[in-house]
Amino acid sequence: MKDFIQGKAYVVGDSIDTDQIIPAVHLVYSLTVPEERQFYGRYALCGLPEGQQGLPVGNVPFTQPDQFKSDFTFIIAGSNFGCGSSREHAPFALQEAGAEVVIAESYARIFYRNAVDGGFVIPFESRVRLIEQIKTGDELELDTTTGVLTNKTSGETFLLNPLGDVAEILKCGNVFEYARRAGLMA
């Protein structure tokens, strides 16, 4: 886990479910074959209704239609991010598009767990409703060790909730390394 992460914000609403993060029709691509896995980056968050794509204005695709990588590093979300199916393709797609951090008011548990155990994106929790204070395209900087988030565009700073127990897994990179250190696998 990097100590400092900076980049642009992409803002979405409440209860963004996994069908909006990566619609079921795209789940057929291989996650290991490079020519195929890049499509997860292309289609990440494409299930959002157009008006909800990149708040507050909307109509900003997370990944441009002909691209495989997104310009956005941070996803700023409301409550219950990642609800719905157990598909690990969801945090994977965000990572494949180039996102590194999600900051939501709360998460659905399977998404949260997948993000951590697979080491795909770091799921921070905000203490306030950031989606009303940060705009899509704002330049952000996060200190992952202190949880201090700075919006360089507006000059505001916010303190995020500590990562808690899962920080250990995130530091290991994924749950396998964590299990190795716990003596559960060679």
Partner: peptide, 10 residues
């Protein structure tokens, strides 16, 4: 309960 692919592989 449901889990992702990583947990299932573990």
């Amino acid at each position: 309960t449901g889990v992702g692919n990583t947990d299932a592989a573990l």
